[in-house]
Each structure stands twice: as C-alpha cells, then as structure tokens.
Design a protein around this nucleic acid. Structure first.
Lengths: 233, 233
DNA sequence: GCTTAAATTTAACGCATTTTTAACGACAGC
DNA sequence: GCTGTCGTTAAAAATGCGTTAAATTTAAGC
C-alpha cells in the first residue's frame, strides 16, 4: 500500500516540487494550500504523514499543529523559513516530530520522512475506538456512552482521546499536560484535575468506582474500559 | 524513573557540557570517550537513548551505528561537524533517528532528545524485574507480591526499586538516602528506618526473618529474593 | 458589532493519603 | 548498666486529589 503524505503549504511551486519528489519515491501526495483545508483533508483522507509549512496565509502553523494533536498522533514534519532555536524548540515541544529549515535539500527531506515513517508507530484511520460502553470518534470529535451521544469540549475530548489511545495503560500526568496544554504547563496538575472532573461528570463516571477513568495516585490516569476495537491493539 | 542517556564523544568538554545539561533536565547520563567503550556501556547499562558523535578516535561513527543496530532499536541521535546532505542521508538511512550539526544549541538538542524519547517506542530492559514472589514494574510504578498487586507510595517504590536494581547486593544507607531524599539528607537514617518498616509491612515481610529485605546492621539493606529476570544480571 | 452562551482558567475547601517528626521498647556491645 | 542502633508505633505536618464555584477568556448567534 502506497503511503499517503499530506502537504500543507501555500506556495504552489514548493507543493509541486514536493509532489514530484514524493511520487518518485513511491509515495502518494495530497495537497492543501492553507491550514483550514489541510485540517479538513487530514480527516477525509487519512494520510500517513503531514508536511506542514509554518507560514500559512489563513491560520498560524502552531494552531494547525495544535489542532492536529487534539485528535491524532500522525507524524508531522514542520517546514519553516526561520532558523531560530526558540521556534524549533517550541514546535518540537508542541508535538512536531521533526523540523526542517528552508531552503532544504530534497534528499534530506525524503530521508527525514522515511525515518519518521520507519520509526513512529502510527496507524491511520482508527475510525472509531470502541470500548465496553464507550465509543470515541476522533474524526468527528464525537463520543458515545452506552449508545447515547455525549458532547465534549475540545480539551475534554483531547484528554479522553489520549487515554483511549492506550487502553488499560497508565498515562502519566506530564504526558497528558504536555499533549493538551503544551510543555509550558507540564507541571500544572490542577488543570488536569478539573478537566478530569468535568470529563468524568459527562461520562457519568465515578472517581471512587471508575468505570472508565481510573486515577493512579501520584502518577497519572488510565482508561479501564475494555477495548473492543480500535485503539492500540 | 530517570531516563539514561549514553554519550559517545571524544571531546571531554562537550561531554561535560552535555552531562550538565542532561542532569538539569532530569536525565541520568553515562559517558564513553570512544566507540568501543560506547558499545560496551550500551550492553552493560541499558540506556534509553544514545547521543553519538561521528568523529571518534578509534572507530568510524558509521561503524558504531551499524553495530548498535545489529542488536538494538534504541533511539540514536548523531552529532557531526559536517553539514553535508549526503552525510545526513547516509546516516538517517543507516538507522540514525535524528541528526544535529555542530555547533548546535543545547535547547535544540534537549528538545530533539525529548521528541525521540516521546515518539519512539523503545523498551530498554525487559521492562519489569521479576524475583521469586516479587515483581517490580518501574514504568508504571507497580509491584506484585505472589501475584497480588500492591499499592506503594512514591518513596516506598523508590526504595524498593533501588534495592531491586541490585538484587542480592548490599546497598548502603547513604546510597539510598541520597537517591531518595537527596544529598542534604544523607545522614538522616531515621527517614530510612520508618520507610523500611512501611515497605516491609506492605510486602508482608518480617524484619527478623526477611523474605525480601534484609538488614545489614550498620551498613545498609539488601534484597534477598532470587532474581528470575530483569535487574542487573 | 453587540449580546449571550460556552469553555477555560483561577481560586478555595474538604478529605484522604503520604511524609515527617517524635517517642518508646528490644537488643547487642562494652 | 550505659550507649547506640534498629524496628515499631503514633501524632503532626504536608501534600495530592476531587470537587465546586467564581472570574476570565473564547466562541457563537443574531
């Protein structure tokens, strides 16, 4: 199966240049000329990797990255014109998997893409993640409990998503904090505490007798519901 | 538990510089000044990540990388002085997970290390340490006695972990005190006494006829259970 | 652009657990 | 019998988690 790469870049020339290179390497490419279309394509097309240009005409590149990370762990390689260390650090901590400065060589770009596809375990289109009494749909950001649809906010969904990705596995607080609020809030556990409370309330879960989200004191949280389909098998 | 980083670099200054930075970030670092020693340390110490300098005095950096990849999927970040695309491509295709050119910024180095540790699934040791009737799982801070899960607090776990790391070996009180409470409490043996009592109670152990933790009067403690798997073989 | 609703961030409090401190008994060496 | 070490217990202090509600920011509707 050919791997699909989503290119989000406003410069038509660069897109064309990348498409040709990717095709030559045996990849299939889909393209978006701005952030909003990129996010839409991501959900429609289920690519295996995203190449994201920071300088987009409509929305900030950081924003796109954050949106992607709300509901997906797809490998993201960021391109940018500026070679500032602070920018790099911010992006990598914000969830980017790699970073390349313009102008770059095609061969390095291809090599780095190969590395990401080789090293990062990512299964596209988890479609729905189905658990005993709980369904999580990352594409539409919808959740069902015992068949009834539940409305979650963005952050509530992100939290549930990150737990649902590793059913039964303990996810550390730091991991969740960094994933949802970014590295600058890696220590602010009170954020997590109130979000957990809200999420539990909407899921009709009880902290003392958890059906879905169990607390591992001092460490983090864990989704206890049995995985029936999707998630990390 | 602290993640271990193996530094393979011949320049003492750079090693020192990295060690200081890594320690500040909460990582533990071990160092080798050439390739052969690096490969030896890799097997002995089970680090979580390798930072490899290409220009080594004894053997080629490529060779070291190939040797590592013969038997391990550990994340490897390569450092080099030359910024040639062909070199980068060759390294990345040869199994390196990331690449950084000298001179580099510490913050970028740290950021890239964090990304590798975050994104690449790699289990250094077997994961848990198994003894006769006792299982210690450092990753999730869980402990089992005779198959039954036991709830330990952070400090209790840290204590047991440091003993389990060296099964059968005497661990001095100072060593434990420094590891758990820090150097400022290296003399406060009463801390250790009550923590030992609590831990023994939870493990159902008896100080007078120790099944797990034996006292070595005047010196320290020792885990007496037989190691079946994991730990320092 | 204004109004209203929703979501997010702060702040505060109760409760349970953990950690620290202190006190006491058992035992061994001198 | 004194002294020092270890183990145990209990209390006091500190910390961590869950919860609620108010304040602030952000998004939505008109």
């Amino acid at each position: 199966m050919k791997k699909k790469i989503l290119i989000i870049d406003d410069e038509q020339q660069i897109r064309h240049f990348m498409r040709v290179s990717f095709t030559a390497e045996g990849y299939q490419s889909i393209e978006a000329e701005n952030g909003v279309k990129g996010l839409a394509l991501l959900k429609q097309e289920n690519p295996n990797l995203v190449v994201l240009d920071l300088g987009l005409p409509d929305v900030d590149g950081y924003y796109v990255l954050r949106e992607i990370r709300q509901s997906s762990k797809i490998p993201v390689l960021v391109l940018t014109a500026r070679d500032q260390e602070s920018v790099k650090v911010k992006l990598l901590e914000g969830g980017a998997n790699d970073y390349l400065c313009k102008p770059f060589g095609v061969r390095e770009l291809i090599a780095r893409i190969k590395v990401l596809l080789r090293d990062i375990v990512y299964e596209p289109t988890p479609g729905h993640m189905v658990f005993d009494g709980l369904v999580v749909k990352p594409k539409t950001l919808q959740v069902e409990v015992d068949g009834k649809p539940i409305k979650l906010s963005k952050k509530e969904f992100a939290l549930l998503f990150h737990l649902a990705e590793k059913p039964g596995v303990l996810v550390t607080r730091t991991e969740l904090l960094v994933a949802i609020w970014g590295a600058t809030h890696a220590e602010d556990t009170h954020y997590l505490r109130v979000l957990i409370t809200q999420l539990r309330k909407k899921l009709n879960d009880d902290a003392d007798a958890p059906r879905f989200i169990a607390t591992e004191p001092g460490i983090g949280y864990r989704l206890v519901a049995k995985a029936l389909k999707g998630g990390a098998q």
